[in-house]
Nucleic acid binder design. Structure first.
Lengths: 229, 229
DNA sequence: GGTCCATGAATCTTATGGGATACAGGATTC
DNA sequence: GAATCCTGTATCCCATAAGATTCATGGACC
């Protein structure tokens, strides 16, 4: 058992990332280095490093001599491009993951069960707390991650990570809006993908996966419009 | 005309990036924060920020409380995965770029001419200087960049950037080795891609592009073995 | 001879401080 | 009344300093 060797920078980064994904700050809000340092009771140095790292993830923007701000939500155009890019890499990952079909199937079944369980809990709750919603999104993402895990290509996987941060920016739009979480649709679409995988139907799996992603884009666009009103 | 608003961090990052791509440091070499600060005559603070950014690009590795080291060259397995990922995103970009076929063709013709000109200059020189080789690689990369420029998807393009840094690590392997630059093959393969594009032969363009990338991988693998001897 | 531990230099990590910049609000000028 | 200038505050940027960790060296001990 190795000792956890972490530095303050990592903790600070985690902390800020949490607040970003919780939506504690509105898009466009300024992230003051000194302010964050005071708030977290550390010096500005680790904060600066954490912000540089977060900037590269796309969640925040940086302007020289002015500071960092929370990235604006994705425009409909950007959402369309994001979905398009996801279709490209996720279908590619699916194709490669079929080489390890047994393990893929097992993992997807497990991930889908966890996803469904969380969806059920949310459906039973009138006003689901943030923690639950956060867990739900993680479970949703885990289903897609499983595909990449068996694709055996670390570069495709790193692209998935890049996409992941932006996918959050997409979700944030509708969390703010009046719309409900799309758990019913997402579960149904994941189930369809899983069914094709279990049948070892490669082309069908690609097709249902593509359909699912495009539906996510559609829903997101719709919710965004609703949120704007 | 706006004044150039840059900060030291950006300059430092550029400086270190230059040295990394020039191969001034061997893979595994330690990048001492204090040492770099002394060397560049700045304080450690901007150096730290630059290194965080470079770490996210994959060119250097970081270990808490130990420091940064130049990333090891890619293993044959990693090269294979890199090529595979490039095939995925570059063919996808090519398909999308065909929607703006006229502009794509014009840009590719221009990029290819520049690439060829540099290849000719290298062929005429007995021992091409680093600067020339660097320019050659940039011209080579510009050909591929042109495809993404017209694909109209910023996320695919950001994936290309991610790949770009690693592609450099791949090249570094053979620059160190005894092998010659593969300019003849690269030019011929690019020409084949360009020809299919000019014919507006979509499937042919994808096929020649895929063939080109796989050939790059083959040559890189071979050169790596040669360099190891 | 091998192992263990103390020691110190080099380095990383974080904190603190001073100079510079951006921005908002009010005064001044035309 | 509008544009310009000035000024104060908050903040950023970087340098310097102090504490913590790593690693290599060398001597003591078994």
């Amino acid at each position: 058992m190795s000792v956890k060797r972490q530095v303050l920078r990592a903790e600070v980064q985690e902390m800020i990332l949490d607040r970003l994904t919780q939506g504690s700050w509105r898009p466009g809000a300024r992230l003051s280095i000194d302010g964050l340092a005071r708030d977290l009771d550390v010096s500005p140095t680790p904060v600066r490093e954490a912000l540089v790292a977060l900037e590269r993830s796309g969640l925040i923007r940086y302007q020289a001599l002015k500071g960092y701000v929370v990235a604006e939500p994705l425009t409909p155009q950007q959402i369309a491009e994001l979905i398009d890019a996801r279709v490209v890499i996720e279908t590619a990952a699916m194709t490669r993951a079929f080489a390890h079909w047994e393990e893929l199937t097992a993992d997807l079944v497990e991930a889908h069960a966890a996803h469904q369980a969380l969806a059920d809990r949310i459906a039973e709750t009138d006003e689901p707390p943030y923690e639950l919603i956060h867990e739900y999104f993680l479970a949703d993402a885990a289903f897609h991650e499983a595909i990449f895990r068996h694709a055996g290509n670390r570069f495709l996987d790193s692209m998935r990570e890049t996409i992941h941060a932006h996918a959050h920016r997409m979700r944030q739009t509708w969390s703010a809006g009046p719309g409900q979480i799309d758990s019913a649709e997402a579960i149904a679409e994941h189930a369809a993908v899983l069914a094709r995988v279990q049948e070892r139907n490669h082309d069908g799996a690609l097709q249902t996966l593509r359909t699912h992603l495009e539906a996510v884009g559609e829903r997101s666009g719709g919710m965004q419009e609703a949120a704007q009103e």
